[in-house]
Amino acid sequence: MAQLVQVDRERRRFARRHRAGRVTLYVLAVLAALAAAGPFVWAAITTFKQDSDLYRRNNNPFVFNKPPTTDHVELLLNRTGFTTFAWNTLWVGTLVVLITLALSIPAAYSLARLDMPWASRMGIAIFFVYLVPPTLLFLSLSRIVVALGLQDSAWSLVVIYPTITIPVSVWLLIGFLKTIPRDIEEQAMVDGHSRLGALVRVVVPLLFPGIVAVVVFAFTLTASEFIYALAFISPSAEKVISTGVPTELVRGDVFFWQSLQAATVLVAVPVALVFNLFLNRFIAGFTQGAVKG
């Protein structure tokens, strides 16, 4: 009897602790979401504010004290190069991702599978390339860009950005390749495929999660990049989002705040949505790359 009471008390204690744990979890989750997304929510509110509402020191910044307006979104979309910048970011990013994949899949395969001499050392060396900061390289790279005749053209970024994305991508892909059993491609080769055929028909489909991780990582790195884009390109029509928006909407001391916030929200939300869709695959990629690479 005493034992039963004891068990019952234990169970209730456990349930209480469990409930407390759930509450803590929800509180923390809400806090994290607020801390991360709060600035964006507030940016979204700012976007639709009238000047006379926004620039009044004692107005509540979180509500519309005057009717909301879409003027500033229109300004952003129709009277600045925003759409051009977005388009430039998109096509530069896409090409960079393609170049990255085209170079890093074979390189990673070669280092992970083809018994190259010093393969693991070469893998680490390629990762260290990633550590060479753009701040160190941009001065001489701008000379090289001039020599290539690509100054003031978004194509310069297509040529240069893979220097940032390839090292991480090779490192990630090596990790993914290590999780694919060798037997599978050996079986494919026994079945009459060449090494190359086995790579294309068998390994690449299995590598798909890793490729997705690389695509996401490479694209966000490219879209965020600031120094090269700032240093290489000055004409407006060739600028990308991260340099174009600040230069067009900050004129001397005048900040077009609502339009700036609109730009942030319009860029952030779609990218985060796509990224979120891929998150699970991306997580899988990092585990392999980090732990087994």
């Binding site: 759930r22 979890l25 929800y26 989750a29 809400v30 994290a32 979401a33 991360a36 997304a37 600035p39 964006f40 507030w42 940016a43 700012t46 970011t89 966000t220 879209a223 965020s224 600031f226 989002i241 991260s242 340099t243 928006v245 600040p246 900050v250 900040f255 705040w257 700036l260 916030q261 730009a263 942030t264 860029v267 952030a268 939300v269 990218v271 985060a272 949505l273 990224f275 979120n276 998150l279």
Partner: peptide
């Protein structure tokens, strides 16, 4: 937990936004 998808989406925002833009939002904050 319920709403995990939404929380994941929201907490990813700072990383997926180009640095220059999110920093501009902070400049205004």
């Amino acid at each position: 937990f319920r709403g995990r998808w939404l929380v994941r989406f929201l907490v990813l925002l700072p990383w997926t936004t180009p640095v220059a833009l999110s920093t501009l939002t902070w400049l205004w904050l």
